[in-house]
Computed example of a mutant assay.
Amino acid sequence: MTACAIEAPADGDAAADPESGTLAITADGMYGARLAGTGEALFAERWTLGGPEPYAVPLPLGQPEEREAGVLPLTDGRVLIRRRVAERHTFSLLYPTGPATGELPLGAVTADDLVLLPPCPDGARAFALAPGPVSTGVWMVAGGPAGPELLATVPGHCSGGAWLDRAGRMLALDRGMPGGGPVKAVAVDLARGGEVTPLLQITESSNDRLLLADADSGLVLVRSDAPGRGDERLGWGVLGSLRPVRFPESLRLPDAVVTPFAVQPGQVLTPESCAVAVRIDGAGGSWAGVWRPADRRLHQLAPPRGWLAGAGVWDRAGVLQLPYADGEVACGVARAGCEETFGRKEDAAPGGHRAAGSATDSTQTEPAGGELSGAPRGPVMRKPVPLQQAPLTGRGARG
């Protein structure tokens, strides 16, 4: 576990409040950004994660930021901030200039709602969704030649957002059409004027959302109610595979919600070996877990105290890094390999789930032969559509 130094704000304000916001991390794991501060005295904060000793740089301006402001890090070290001013959403780039903070205004977008998408894989651009009841705008809000640019208008109400390649061209969105009907994941080609093609359909009537995608291995994590058990399940598949989406019992906890947030990179064409970091939310709080398709078990981990829940990144050596900030350490990064814990083995994760660090400690193990779920227990349903029918096969979606 490595704690990192923090540079004090120029005005001597208190250190970051870990509850102010989670940390958005660039695709290469070099930088992070979040809203930090105490009470209403909020400011953007950049974390440098890729150096020999991680550290944080506060980026305060003349007045505090609103709590609804959004921030994204870029790989050149600048931080994009989105602010709402009446019906407009303004964008600026923040960067340190000695003891002060520099600000470069980029322009504004007029929209009722606007949501920043996850950091672009190229690290140089930033994108946002402006969802509406009939259509959704996809905006490039940083990295363009002349301020925010509308790249695509997608029919339907879109949410979510996952990048499918390393070039920042193919974007997966969860789309609901006007008039009702199931939510389906679609692929939006930003290099073809926002061309939209179906991406995931397990059954015609199921809600199928894509949560996370890995360009190296083709592994995708989805959430769907297709298994037919009255709730949405977490499943996995592979773009271009001949096999259907699978819904492991090991990813189903009775009193908690499991959400993936990071996939181990560098596992080219070996999706079943990829380690996936997940956030587990239960009545007792939030904690972490590690899962691999080939293992068919979920290792639950006691994260560091003050973990910015849902934030973290893998390195290519298979080490998971979780950022944290507590009352004693204002900026820290805990590191552990796939089979280690961030705390002692006897520590229990919130909600009574044991923090497991090895196969023998795992609390959720898939029964033998139980990985596939092409047919659910109970009434017979339509056979799931394999992921190889997604239109990305052969179009360079894996980067």
Rank of each mutant, 00 (worst) to 15 (best):
E195Y: 02
L242M: 07
L239I: 14
D11M: 14
W287I: 05
P131Y: 02
A330H: 13
Y324F: 12
P379F: 04
P64L: 04
A162R: 06
H353D: 14
E339P: 04
P323S: 09
A356L: 11
R169G: 08
G144W: 15
G32H: 04
R335F: 03
L93A: 06
P367L: 05
E272I: 06
V57K: 10
A187K: 01
P148K: 07
G240L: 11
R382T: 01
P386L: 00
G194C: 00
A41D: 12
L269I: 12
P148V: 06
G230N: 03
G230L: 00
R344K: 07
A126H: 09
T153S: 05
A86W: 15
G343N: 06
L392P: 02
L104P: 03
G143D: 12
P131H: 02
L199D: 04
G285W: 09
G327P: 10
A311D: 03
V380Y: 05
M177R: 00
C338H: 13
A36P: 15
L171E: 02
V85I: 09
G156Q: 01
S206V: 02
A311P: 07
E66H: 15
R166T: 13
G179L: 03
L151F: 05
V186T: 01
A368P: 08
R243Y: 06
P265S: 10
Q300T: 15
S217N: 04
R233L: 10
L61N: 09
R297S: 10
Y324W: 06
P73F: 11
V268M: 13
V141W: 09
E19M: 12
I25V: 15
G107C: 05
V313Y: 10
T2M: 14
A44G: 06
Y95G: 12
A375P: 03
G240C: 05
G394W: 03
A294R: 03
W314C: 12
R297M: 15
W307Q: 06
R305W: 09
L129I: 00
V196A: 03
L322N: 06
S217W: 04
E45D: 09
H157L: 01
G180C: 07
V380Q: 09
R252V: 12
G282W: 01
A397K: 03
C158L: 01
E272Y: 04
S273C: 05
A325C: 14
P227M: 05
P9K: 14
D231S: 14
R279Q: 14
D122R: 08
S241D: 06
W236D: 10
P58V: 11
E346D: 13
D208Q: 02
T110E: 13
A213Y: 08
G284R: 11
V258S: 08
G378L: 04
V385W: 01
A41Y: 11
V141S: 07
R192Y: 08
E45A: 04
C331P: 09
T48N: 12
L94T: 09
Q63T: 15
R335C: 11
G237C: 07
L74K: 11
V258Y: 10
R229E: 15
A294Q: 04
G70P: 01
G51S: 11
T26A: 10
K345T: 14
W236Q: 07
P133D: 01
K184E: 03
